[in-house]
């Protein structure tokens, strides 16, 4: 680890001010950043710890909307239950140690192509709320580790419309237990949304053909005849592109069945 300073703001305003510093880096739960620092793969001047910002903590439900503070841990979301599909997803992230440190804001800001939360945010049509604006999930995810966040911008909360039914199924990469293919299916009155993580070179994406079919008939049988192109799929030692493409359909069907 290289040397760095740590600041611990108490408010979003203080955090934003600290992030304006040279080579400042936001620190959520540190589940990706700390190992990266230990390996000397990053050298920020200042870490801005967000865990003490009380405005960014907690989960509030109002009507059919669930608002989760950006510094809320996976464990807190897993324990909440207001949006069972989302809580189910949070409970599958990492292990208890990870879930007690890792945060939703940190996960979404990092946008690991195999992370779980991006699938929930995209499938739910969530709104990413930052210290400066609100970003629709459809506009937020811009490829592997790429997001719409600007330099110094902080995810302060995420707002999820609670669907009629939802489920997340994760087929794990056996070593990391990140998603080899993870699919979040969410059924709203307006239609069904399906988001896939782990599989694509472009990061999380919506499987629109499945959304159309499932909006007509929310059953696994509706997926018969559909297929996913392997063209943009990741191919690595854990799975070929065609395997991942195949798994998307299998895992989607399982998510639909579990949600039904």
């Amino acid at each position: 680890m290289y040397n760095f300073d740590v600041v611990t703001p108490n408010t979003i305003a203080e955090a934003a001010a600290a992030m304006a510093g040279d080579e400042a880096q936001a620190l959520g739960g540190g589940q990706t950043l700390i190992p990266t620092l230990k390996q000397r793969l990053a050298s920020p001047n200042t870490l801005v710890s967000l865990s003490g910002v009380s405005e960014m903590q907690g989960i509030t439900k109002s009507g059919d909307t669930l608002r989760i503070g950006g510094a809320t841990t996976h464990h807190a979301v897993a324990s909440d239950g207001s949006y069972p599909g989302l809580s189910g997803l949070a409970g599958q992230i990492g292990d208890p140690a990870v879930r007690n440190r890792g945060t939703i804001g940190g996960s979404l800001a990092n946008n690991d192509p195999a992370a779980c939360y991006p699938a929930a945010a995209l499938a739910s049509g969530a709104t990413i709320i930052t210290n400066t604006r609100e970003i629709a999930a459809d506009d937020y995810f811009q490829g592997m580790f790429e997001t719409a966040l600007e330099e110094g911008e902080i995810i302060t909360a995420v707002s999820f419309p609670i669907p009629q039914a939802a489920n997340y199924q994760k087929f794990v990469q056996p070593a990391s237990r990140f998603a080899l293919v993870g699919v979040f299916v969410a059924k709203y009155a307006s239609g069904v949304r399906v988001a896939v993580t782990g599989a694509s070179n472009d990061g999380v994406f919506r499987w629109t053909e499945a959304e159309e079919a499932l909006s007509r008939d929310f059953s696994a049988a509706a997926l018969e005849g559909l297929s996913v192109s392997e063209d943009d799929m990741i191919s690595d030692l854990h799975g070929t592109a065609r395997y991942r493409a195949h798994l998307i359909k299998v895992v989607t069907a399982r998510a639909v069945t579990a949600a039904s």
Partner: peptide, 11 residues
């Protein structure tokens, strides 16, 4: 060695 950490080497 592409499997040089527990992110890719499965125990």
């Amino acid at each position: 060695l592409l499997s040089a950490s527990y992110m890719d080497y499965t125990m």
